[in-house]
Nucleic acid binder design. Structure first.
Lengths: 210, 210
DNA sequence: CAAGTAGCCTACCGTGAGTAGCCTACTGGC
DNA sequence: GCCAGTAGGCTACTCACGGTAGGCTACTTG
């Protein structure tokens, strides 16, 4: 939602000429909003350009293609999310508490823009989905690191599989959550922690190496 | 892959005139293959028609729209998958063994057409994705039934959330599995069972009500 | 004060979803 | 036997949208 700020910044320039870097930020901000509203397919580059008060080639000069744009938006969102989760997890020691903190941070982030996540998560971008898969793998690797910092009893591949399972499960629940507005993030985080923690502790140790 | 059979059946008709019901089965069979090969976006209705040796309006008369077609294909696949899982699970008693059997059945089904699942699973179909979500919910409800047949200690909503978490996690791992061909379904099923079973047993009981 | 270039725009192309309108062969009542 | 009525198809379009070609202005720099 930095859209507002960027828009104002853009407006300060004369003749509608705006430096490349700022324009790029504007595209990303506006594109995120558009994807959230309309979904990937529903969002048209034409409308994006129009919202920015600019013509299509300007957009294309900055982002290359619709798929690349979507990937960039996703990467940005994913990065912010990762940051929040890392912060939340850093404060905790035991595997169970870390897990709970991570899930809660994720759910809270999602809760802030429910509709948005539905659009962003449940989306593949055609041939370019390879890169989306890569982003998801990156997130999983973060989770793997959070989990695995305890003891390394499992090979990396299994650890990654576990991380993916946790990630995918939480994402799926988050998607469905949209239809269950009464559920609080705390309730869900607790439930999911109870689902995952026992198995993870058995497989990985509880992280209280000491 | 009944494509072969349907094609032969179609060929038996004179003048290329084929009864509606058969044509419809042909469309679904051929469409599944096409979506699997090219993905949703990459598949064109033109090519689908050409493969069937027919013109576009014929296809549209039978399926309405590309999204509806995709939804129908997904529903069919989902139904077959559910059947296999139900069979596998029916033979087992304890929650842990049922879980293991279900996951294994899922993974084996997926293994049979790896590339296919990548295309089908990781896909949203634009505005119609609502219906895909509905299908996934249906699958989750099946899983919920499989899980919940033990004891009913949790309310239905939490049970559904757990089923979604398991489903989503297994699906995500299955998607990633494509890049890890050395892993056997058995290995993965065991790992995932170890992840989920302890938590589920703690939350639901072990199903050995006796 | 040229020459270069950064930022834009109008006008177009190609592809692919979906449709209008017409044709043809089989059916069933008279 | 003949003439609807209709089921199954086809050609030839429209329209929306991703992406691009080529040209115009205004600011910078030697």
């Amino acid at each position: 939602m930095t859209t507002r700020a960027v828009t104002r910044e853009v407006a300060e320039h004369a003749h509608g000429r705006v430096p490349r870097e700022l324009r790029r930020r504007q595209v990303l901000a506006e594109a995120k909003g558009l994807f959230v509203e309309r979904g990937y397919q529903g969002a048209s580059m034409e409308e994006l350009a129009k919202r920015m008060g600019v013509s299509k080639p300007v957009v294309y000069a900055l982002v290359g293609s619709k798929e690349a744009l979507f990937r960039d938006v996703m990467a940005q969102v994913s990065e912010e999310l990762s940051l929040r989760m890392a912060e939340a997890v850093a404060a905790e020691r035991s595997l169970e508490r870390r897990l709970h903190a991570g899930i809660l941070a994720f759910l809270r982030y999602v809760a802030a823009e429910r509709r948005g996540w539905k659009a962003l998560l449940s989306m593949e971008a055609g041939p370019g989905s390879e890169e989306i898969v890569a982003i998801k793998r990156g997130q999983a690797q973060l989770v793997a690191a959070l989990l695995g910092s305890g003891t390394g009893e499992l090979d990396a591949r299994r650890l990654e599989a576990l991380a993916l399972a946790v990630n995918g499960g939480v994402e799926t629940v988050a998607l469905w959550w949209e239809t269950q507005p009464e559920l609080t993030p705390e309730t869900l985080a607790e439930l999911l922690t109870k689902l995952y923690a026992p198995g993870l502790v058995a497989l990985l140790g509880d992280g209280e190496a000491a």
